[in-house]
Write a protein that binds this DNA or RNA. Structure first.
Lengths: 360, 360
DNA sequence: CCCCAATGTGAGTCCGGTCTCAATCGTAAG
DNA sequence: CTTACGATTGAGACCGGACTCACATTGGGG
């Protein structure tokens, strides 16, 4: 409404104070709503602020309150719907509590994660939510703890760190899912994940990701309970881009002693695996059974609809943000949250293998 | 390595200066890498900083440089893969240039957007990328301009604002797609969008979204070129949650004079529309043809694979960030970017309608 | 009618950096 | 041997708020 031209310097409390003919301290009190201010002064200051279109500088405010009302979120890839949904959960809770979110992608590279954490700490975020790329390399997370700022882990645990972690227990659901496949008659069950490792998978090898470890543990347990050996040759890590995943899928299905069921470790992998299966002219579940982690809407639209392991991703995001903000604001008491469980949603992509070999 | 306990106060330049036995100014110069510093002093300061594990306070730095190296990104919903992908494009470019991203969701509410812009301005971001919820209510965007901070619009244009806007031209691709449907024999072509309006759609009504306006304009033009009237009763706006979209779909397909083709305005809508079609026991494209905006990987996995209007979403995110950062760093010269075009990807979800009525 | 407490107020410090400016140091030119 | 000019250096202002502290004012109780 006021006919001011383009302004160069921002309006500050000092400007407002001058306009309202009071001291800077009084103007700050009236605007910041603290301390003792007379009705008269308050009105004059507020009017002046309105007139000048005063906006507080949050940077300056943060500087001497020590609170930035900003939390850092470090995820592997925001393009991955899994993180998209989790992030939505985080931002929804954050907004409700007056916090904002700085988002950084790491592409699951620990180096990028280290850098991200460092930068966020430098920016003086009030707390961090990290989906750690590695459960083993965690010195940088340890540093967050030492800095005194709250930290919550999402999706994956980190070894030896006393940190609130919001993640579903993968071992049990993996066990359950594997049992389901075993009971359907499958023995050659493949598992495809993007987890990066230096060497191909071998049984008992220590893995960077608690998630994947737990999933493999669950599978192994299910096999062993049946007196069977979990086929380590069908565990394929290091799945990269879409093309490499398709290649992996072809290998799994075209070798002698091929896989009769494939478990995809996340939605992105699932897309490429299913695509490759279709390209090979094979049918699900007639030629190969399929199971995937995460339940996205599109999994119901394929023919047949896909059997999935549904995780409460949005809720996990909310829980992580809630836990973090509680730490930021109050005492550390994490107050046991309700357990977040994954569940097997049986739709149509699993059936008995073409040639059932119960004894192998 | 150093065996320090948990530290309460952060290390500052003053601390480093004291440890290195130089003045604060010299320490700052050595650390900030500016001004003239002797080799001797530089080494002592750097050693002290290393020893104390000094980390600069970016807040303080931002305060007197005026640059926060942070950009604000305001989108409708990060959970929507469209924005997830665009955000990825933005963050990739931002990271490459040393910028970070504060992300805010608006749920396509203008009120939330106004608030988001205000907060980001208060936090002194260096620039803003906004996917405006409304192309008409743009006073808050005007304020951004007046604040002197760079602004780039994503996805949608905003009326009367002289702002760099990264969006594909929807009129042409919509025209082309509609022609395709018309040539396939369709006349009853429905369009479903989440755009909120106060009243049901009528021909010629002014819409909040430039995107949707352009799409409807393109449809209308295609119809008129054939001497036909664009059926306004089949334009369904205000599609909300999954259930309401399914309901809308049922209405479109079960009334007398039902739609023979449906165009979904985005991926989220598409999911519910296709689901509803399947629930009705109808087949695509036998009973109803289907076309959607945005090309996601899952659209190739359905039976049949879906015909889509592919937009270079990731590239748009990159272009928006590039344009913004150019404005932040250099002069305003937007240097005409290569045009970002959508294209029709014909897969299997469009065919002739069951009962072809060429003349209606 | 006086004293003390509560409220109101302004000057000035602080947060943690950047940056200006004048003083100091060195050394090569005159 | 003196002078001048560039490289170093330290003191202190400054960014824009929050907050401390000493100093008014005011009013109620004794």
């Amino acid at each position: 409404m006021s006919s001011n031209g383009s302004r160069r310097r921002d309006i500050t409390v000092a400007d407002v104070a001058k306009a309202a003919q009071v001291s800077k301290a009084q103007a700050a009190r009236a605007l910041g709503n603290y301390g003792a201010v007379s009705q008269d002064v308050r009105e004059r200051v507020l009017a002046a602020a309105e007139e000048l279109d005063y906006r507080p500088n949050e940077l300056a405010r943060s500087m001497n309150t020590g609170k930035s009302h900003t939390i850092g979120v470090v995820v592997g890839d925001i393009e991955n719907p899994h993180f998209g949904l989790a992030t939505r959960g985080i931002t929804d809770i954050a907004k409700k509590s007056g916090f904002h979110v700085i988002l950084i992608n790491t592409d699951e590279e620990t180096a990028a994660e280290v850098e991200a954490v460092r930068v966020l700490l430098d920016k003086r975020v009030d707390g961090l939510i990290v989906a750690p790329a590695s459960s083993l390399e965690t010195q940088h997370l340890q540093q967050v703890r030492e800095s005194g700022r709250p930290l919550v882990l999402l999706d994956r645990k980190a070894g030896g760190l006393d940190v609130v972690t919001i993640a579903v227990d993968m071992a049990d659901i993996s066990y359950e899912s594997t049992r389901y496949l075993l009971e359907s008659g499958h023995r050659r069950i493949a598992f495809v994940s993007t987890l990066k490792t230096d060497e191909p998978y071998e049984a008992g090898m220590e893995l960077d990701s608690s998630q994947i470890s737990e999933r493999l543990d669950g599978m192994r347990r299910a096999f062993e309970e049946e007196g069977l050996r979990h086929p380590a040759d069908l565990v394929r890590l290091n799945a990269g881009d879409a093309e490499s995943i398709r290649k992996t899928t072809r290998e799994l299905l075209q070798c002698s002693d091929a896989a009769t069921a494939i478990i995809a470790s996340d939605g992105l992998i699932a897309l490429s695996v299913v695509e490759a299966i279709q390209e090979l002219g094979l049918s699900i579940p007639g030629d190969v059974s399929f199971l995937m982690y995460d339940d996205f809407a599109w999994t119901r639209l394929t023919t047949p609809p896909l059997t999935v392991i549904a995780q409460p991703v949005y809720e996990m995001g909310m829980a992580a943000a809630t836990a973090l903000i509680r730490q930021i604001e109050g005492r550390k008491a994490p107050t046991a949250t309700e357990p977040l469980d994954a569940r097997l949603v049986r739709r149509g992509s699993v059936s008995a293998p073409r040639a059932v070999e119960i004894f192998n």
